[in-house]
């Protein structure tokens, strides 16, 4: 059964990847693997990869900091602070990130100049917004402000999950509210914050491709630039996809180890790393390893039999 399935899958992959019924290029398959190989490590694509990584790091770092700030504001006793946070989240979560990117790119139309000075008084410096907000900076701001709204809800859920007794214990030691949050609550909230943040980072890595629309030379834009010159659209999209996949894979592995780190103290046995699991599987395969079930069964004594029939009415 498994063998039949394997053969079918192999045939399918062969059809998808190596279809050679027609030969549009002299090079072989329609996929043009040579083209893909040629551009996969080209300097233009690599610089695009770098821009994508930069955008992801900037947007996530700023997004997490903004998220913590907004979460604390939302949980603050001050009505003003919590309302400001609520409105922020409402607005940035309620409009498409694509629109926000285009909006930041065109914001110079609304505010052509940024002036530093005293209101209604002298101004010290005036900056042209268009020269300040390069496409890269506009894209970073759009992604980070949007991410902040999502992160704040993740952080807030994490903070709420920490038992109130923890805050009380910290307070009773004389810790200030800020120290309690930083040293006691946030480290424990991390265990709940990390997994969704990993998802957000992976999602962000792909969302950065939207900035190609405002001409930021990211991975997708670089691939498109090349495709526009040589018309190998599919091949260049595959190049971009390979890079996106490689990067999300690295992030997934990193997330596993980060989660493992923050599970310390809350679980007795840390989950095994893939390497450890492989080693376990290998030792289990060895014939001299005792089957677990056999030991359990042989150690079971026969169940004691009751003298009187069950359910007999009491006197």
């Amino acid at each position: 059964m498994a063998a039949v399935l394997a053969v079918l899958v192999a045939m399918l992959i062969h059809t998808l990847v190596f279809s050679t019924t027609e030969q549009p290029h002299a090079t072989g398959s329609r996929f043009g693997w040579e083209t893909i190989g040629q551009y996969l490590f080209s300097s233009h694509v690599l610089s695009g990869v770098l821009v994508t990584i930069e955008l992801t790091i900037i947007a996530m770092l700023a997004g997490v900091i903004l998220g913590i700030l907004l979460a604390v504001m939302r949980m603050s006793k001050s009505r003003l602070l919590s309302s400001v946070a609520w409105v922020y989240i409402w607005f940035f979560r309620g409009t498409p990130v694509f629109v926000q990117i285009i909006f930041w790119y065109n914001i110079a139309a609304l505010y052509p100049h940024l002036t530093l000075g005293i209101p209604f008084g002298p101004s010290f410096a005036t900056v042209n917004i268009n020269s300040l907000l390069t496409p890269f900076i506009a894209g970073s701001i759009a992604l980070a402000t949007n991410e902040g709204a999502y992160m704040s809800e993740i952080v807030r859920a994490g903070i709420i999950s920490v038992d109130e007794g923890q805050t009380e214990a910290a307070s009773s030691l004389g810790m200030s509210r800020a120290k309690t949050l930083r040293l006691i609550v946030l480290p424990q909230a991390m265990r709940l914050i990390i997994p969704p943040t990993g998802n957000e980072t992976i999602s962000m890595l792909k969302t950065t491709s939207l900035v190609s629309v405002i001409a930021v030379p990211d991975l997708l834009k670089s691939a498109q630039d090349i495709a526009n010159a040589n018309y190998r659209i599919i091949q260049l999209l595959i190049v971009a996809s390979i890079w996106y996949l490689a990067m999300t894979t690295v992030l997934s592995v990193g997330q596993f180890y980060l989660e493992r780190h923050y599970a310390r103290g809350s679980v007795r046995n840390l989950p095994a790393t893939p390497l450890q699991r492989l080693r376990q599987d290998l030792t289990r395969l060895r014939p001299q390893g005792k089957p677990v079930a056999e030991v359990l069964v042989s150690s079971l004594d026969p169940l004691p039999v009751a003298d009187e029939p069950r359910g007999a009415p009491h006197e």
């Binding site: 038992d163 007794g165 009380e168 214990a169 307070s171 009773s172 004389g174 006691i184 310390r264 809350s266």
Partner: peptide, 22 residues
Amino acid sequence: IGAQRAAIGMVFQRFNLFPHLS
């Protein structure tokens, strides 16, 4: 308030140890 609390030790019913610290 923190300074006052620092001079008063408190032990809770549910221990409330910090689980992420040794």
